[in-house]
Design a binder for these strands. Structure first.
Length: 424
RNA sequence: GGAGAGGUGGCCGAGCGGUUUAAGGCGCACGCCUGGAACGCGUGUUUCCGCCUCUGGCGGAUCGAGGGUUCGAAUCCCUUCCUCUCCGCCA
């Protein structure tokens, strides 16, 4: 949700922002509806004022005068009903249009219409050179007996998988390693509800835009939605009740399974566990003072880089262009990890500064001496399981098909330093 | 799943159709009192929105949320969410 008052005052800024995001919003119509609404509101409030005044007067009147006043008020009541109805009609139109308006991007966001035009900022780590033909993660998964997609297809269909043996140990080791890391950094660890109400999806900006990406559970009965990321329930931690300014920033690291329909990606990345309906993810979420959010954004990015560096995975940092940003983010960095068998970098983590966009929709505020204000919210992937496992399998594979496990994980994996082939 | 109770301002807590502009208390802020403090006294103290004569004023909404009845709703009716107690079931 954008600030309409601010739109009135800084119209050009918003128009440039919408254009940079390739979102076509009729700003004239939006401002026109806004003005019309405020006009209607004034009429309605004037009538309500009269009603309130007379209501106070009525009990003090004598019977005959009372009857006359009540009759008069009944008439005013009808007029008020009509005025309210027309005001509400305009408000619905106004809100519908305003909800489509995206968060304007930061000036440092590159111009561009889709992911082709994202800007590589830096490349870190050595791309592995193999003196043999590297196997892809699925082939390795079968040889090592750590991934089973055939069984998952029977139980659940395409884009599901079983992890087995060492890969399960590695997944839990990764999360345990990160929990220690984040607690040391002062993040509050949380596990979150993975089913949420519709209003949470709107507040975080996933609805209406990404509605067909989300699983809807028991429509018309329970009406809950499976989260595609713990960002959604994490944002809910400070909705409604304002946080004291000296408690900022509030940094959380949340864990959840993530569920995605992948509706628009038929035929894309169909092999293996790169694009799946369910995976586990640890997510950073930061509630911070508006003056500090750009600093905070760089901090989240630096932690994501630290994680990949310590794992020894080669990656590059992308500054996401306007057209590829999505509605809530004012700026987003993606970290892409090297996938040897695809001979390219693939998206692994992502971190966004949503400034006050989610805060406005969800009522996320802090208070200081001068009153309450909207916070800025930021989120970033700490680690997503399936894709990280792909990166580990493929980048650290040996000629005989065995895979070396990154040293930082050894303390969390007693007695296991590599995965050895179990099948020829 | 069954039966019941309840959601009121920063907090506690009354009110259950019209002097309630939400009593009273606690807390907080300011002032008086004091050598200074406590006590006491006084004043103020929800949030959001709109308008204007914009360090201020006026108005509206807000008693979990939404709808209804009424000239008038915290109060009556319906729907819904949440909390608590007991029973059942259960990791």
């Amino acid at each position: 949700m954008i600030d309409l008052k601010d739109l009135r005052e800084n119209r050009a800024l918003y128009e440039a922002g919408f254009k940079k995001k390739f979102v076509d919003i009729d700003v004239n119509k939006l401002l026109e509806l806004d003005e019309k609404y405020r006009g209607e509101l004034q009429k309605v409030e004037a009538m309500r004022a009269e009603k309130n005044e007379v209501s106070k007067l009525v009990p003090t009147l004598a019977d005959d005068k009372k009857k006359a006043k009540i009759a008069e008020m009944k008439e005013l009541g009808d007029k008020l009903d009509k005025a309210e109805e027309s005001m509400n009609t305009i408000f619905v139109q106004l809100k519908e249009l305003a909800d489509l308006a995206p968060n304007p991007p930061h000036e440092s966001v590159p111009e561009g219409k889709d992911d082709e035009e994202n800007e590589a900022i830096k490349t870190v780590g050595e791309i592995p050179k193999f003196d043999f033909e590297p196997k892809d993660h699925l082939e390795l998964g079968e040889i090592l007996d750590v991934i089973d997609m055939e069984s998952a297809a029977k139980t659940s269909g395409a884009r599901f998988y079983y992890l087995k043996n060492e890969l399960v140990l590695i997944e839990f080791a990764l999360f345990n390693w990160l929990l220690s890391k984040y607690v040391k950094k002062g993040f509050i660890p949380v596990t979150v509800p993975m089913l949420v109400k519709e209003e949470m999806m709107y507040a975080t900006g996933f609805f209406p835009a990404d509605k067909n990406e989300i699983y809807h559970v028991n429509p018309g009965e329970d009406d809950l939605y499976l989260v595609g990321t713990s960002e959604v329930p994490l944002a809910g931690l400070h909705m409604g009740a304002p946080v004291k300014i000296d408690e900022l920033p509030k940094r959380y690291v949340g864990f959840s399974s993530c569920f995605r329909r992948e509706a628009g990606s038929y035929g894309k990345d169909t092999r293996g566990i790169l694009r799946v309906h369910q995976f586990d993810k640890m997510e950073m979420f930061s509630f911070c003072h508006p003056d500090k959010s750009w600093e905070e954004h760089e901090l989240l990015l630096s932690i994501e880089e630290e994680i990949l560096s310590e794992l020894g995975l080669p990656y590059q940092v992308m500054n996401i262009c306007g057209g590829d940003l999505g509605a809530p983010a004012a700026k987003k960095y993606d970290l892409e990890v090297w996938v040897p068998t695809q001979n390219k970098y693939r998206e692994l983590t992502s971190c966004s500064n949503c400034t006050d966009f989610q805060a406005r929709r969800g009522g996320i505020k802090f208070k200081d001496e001068t009153g309450t204000h909207f916070m800025h919210t930021l989120n970033g992937t700490a680690l997503s399981s399936a894709r990280t496992l792909i990166a580990i399998l493929e980048n650290f594979q040996q000629k005989d098909g065995s895979v070396k496990i990154p040293e930082v994980l050894h303390p969390y994996l007693p007695g296991v330093s590599e995965i050895k082939p179990k099948k020829p």
